[in-house]
Design a protein around this nucleic acid. Structure first.
Lengths: 112, 112
DNA sequence: GCCTTAGTACGATAACCGCCGTACTACGAT
DNA sequence: ATCGTAGTACGGCGGTTATCGTACTAAGGC
């Protein structure tokens, strides 16, 4: 039997499904906030974003996976596979449309 | 012995002690977000603010106390006693100085 | 085919959090 | 002084979360 060729698409919430509490909770963790700010430094274009392993984190790989997933499921980041790497980038436009000014304010605050 | 006339002053973090993660965490709970938006509707002047009991919440009194305390310790609200009531109000100015645009963005997002 | 690199799924553990009820204190009114 | 109202402190319960290690899958290079 075919080993069901694992899903290469990742589930993301639709823009209108993004909930404020969930976003705030996702960003309230130091590790995840760090991920968000790191991704903020990278571009958001189609080819932009950073691989999980590019972002240096003081936790194990499996914990990092967990945090990236929380951010993705909250609608903060978008993830897609590119070869063996998984590229992540902020969903700036979606968040700006839904919660104007929020992400910018958080990133600016985190930078200080 | 005098029953040590209970402390009527409540501990608040200094403006520079307010941490972003803590604020985000405080606001990431539906009940607390509701409190914040309710207080946002009231003024912030010296005599303004609302008593805990003014904000209708779908939880018990002791749980409400807990949520107010989380908000206060995060630096989101200021609380002071007035008679038997405890008045709460947002620390708009302090938050604006420390994290410009953040509180407004959250309150505006919560309103929608 | 085999190895390396990147990331994941799973299970376990320990901490945290939200919630409650009960018993209590503080203040003001009667 | 007694009572009612407003809020608190404490302890407990149950669910969620952050963390890890281990074992695994996927893609690409040799």
């Amino acid at each position: 039997m075919p080993t069901t060729t694992a899903v290469r698409e990742l589930p993301h919430p639709a823009p209108e499904e993004i909930r404020l509490e969930t976003v705030l909770h996702a960003l309230s963790d130091p590790i995840r906030l760090r991920i968000a700010t790191a991704l903020g430094a990278h571009g958001e274009g189609d080819g932009a974003g950073a691989a999980c392993s590019q972002v240096e984190l003081p936790v194990s790989a499996s914990t990092a996976t967990h945090h990236f997933r929380v951010l993705r499921e909250a609608g903060v980041i978008k993830q897609c596979y590119r070869g063996t790497a998984k590229i992540s980038c902020l969903r700036r436009a979606d968040l700006e449309a839904r919660f104007p000014g929020l992400l910018d304010a958080v990133l600016r605050a985190a930078a200080s």
